[in-house]
């Protein structure tokens, strides 16, 4: 690895200034699991790395206002997946974090880094898309917040501008009766980069309130089948109308239609598209089964219908 300097900024402003002055040759550094590989391979030649992990809040998971949850960008995958507040309300994100690489790598890889690399196959992204997370960015102009779907711009490209860095991800409240399932397909059975991933999330249904609309709000996000992670809006809308087996198949097909996959060394576009339908259907079915099981455990009305 060619030499570079390792810098610890005193505060956000200094970090921002270092990154801005580096003009791309000074790289933000958190878990390093991607940067070190690319540096070793000679794909990037940083003059210096700026370790952002020590800045206030970067490694914190804390409740925000109005039931939001704030996850510091430098929190590791394991830290996120094992945190009681995440486990309590955002099981979908727990599943996604736990699907990344290996246990020891998840002790280094950070949730913020997963977003900042902007790989279309980033495993936490479909979960964050479903949860409609908001990215908080610090930069020369101060703090700004953008929806996660605007943070991903293209393969390896984010909305970060010169001198900016991701500080945290803000998760909107997720009701207790929300359910999510993350499915991914790799070449090996665990730990591979996703060939396809699909997150399915249902926010509020009639788990607690049998008079609520039968379908609730559905969200479906796809990974590794487009230049960025994608939401499958038409599939979501279809599920609002119909969650019968036939309706699930229609939604799964619409999710596949929303995919914009390419052929690469991991799989063909045709396979990826077909797998979106399979994983989406399985995800929807699993969410419904999960809800139905939860409803069966409710004391009164829920299980009867």
């Amino acid at each position: 690895m060619q030499p570079f300097d390792y810098l610890i900024p005193g505060d956000h402003a200094e970090a921002s200034a270092l990154l801005a002055a580096g003009n791309g040759r000074v790289r933000p550094f958190m878990g390093g699991t991607d940067l070190l590989i690319r540096t070793r391979g000679g794909f990037v030649r940083p003059q210096a790395v700026v370790d952002l992990k020590g800045l206030p809040g970067m490694k914190e998971i804390r409740p925000g206002d109005d039931g939001w949850l704030i996850i510091g960008a430098a929190c590791t995958m394991n830290q996120v997946a094992m945190h009681p507040l995440v486990q309590a309300r955002y099981d979908l994100l727990v599943q996604a974090c736990n699907s990344v690489a290996s246990y020891q790598l998840r002790n280094r890889a950070t949730i913020g880094g997963n977003c900042c690399n902007a790989s279309p196959a980033a495993d936490t992204a479909p979960a964050l898309y479903c949860l409609e997370a908001v990215a908080e960015i610090y930069g020369p102009q101060g703090i700004r917040r953008i929806p996660i779907a605007q943070f991903f711009v293209g393969p390896g490209k984010t909305a970060l501008r010169s001198g900016e860095f991701l500080t945290s991800l803000h998760l909107p409240p997720s009701p207790q009766d929300a359910r999510g399932v993350f499915n991914k397909l790799g070449r090996t059975k665990m730990g591979d980069i996703s060939v396809v991933s699909v997150a399915v999330y249902r926010r509020s249904g009639r788990l607690a309130d049998p008079t609520a609309p039968a379908t609730g709000e559905w969200r479906i996000a796809l990974g590794a089948v487009g230049p960025t992670p994608l939401r499958a809006a038409e599939a979501e809308a279809a599920l609002m109308q119909d969650t019968s087996p036939a309706g699930i198949r229609v939604a799964a097909a619409l999710a596949a239609a929303a995919a914009r996959p390419i052929d690469d060394i991991r799989a063909s576009a045709a396979y990826r598209r077909a797998m979106v339908a399979v994983l989406a259907r399985r995800g929807i079915e699993a969410v419904l089964a999960d809800l139905s099981a939860a409803r069966a455990q409710l004391p009164a009305a829920g299980g009867a219908s």
Binding site: L185, R187, D263, A267, S268, A269, A270, Y271, A274
Partner: peptide, 18 residues
């Protein structure tokens, strides 16, 4: 998996790629 899938679902597969 892709080769098996392609053989089982020839109408969906892209023969050039699998």
């Amino acid at each position: 998996g892709e080769k098996i899938w392609a053989a089982l679902h020839p109408q969906e597969a892209d023969p050039a790629m699998t």
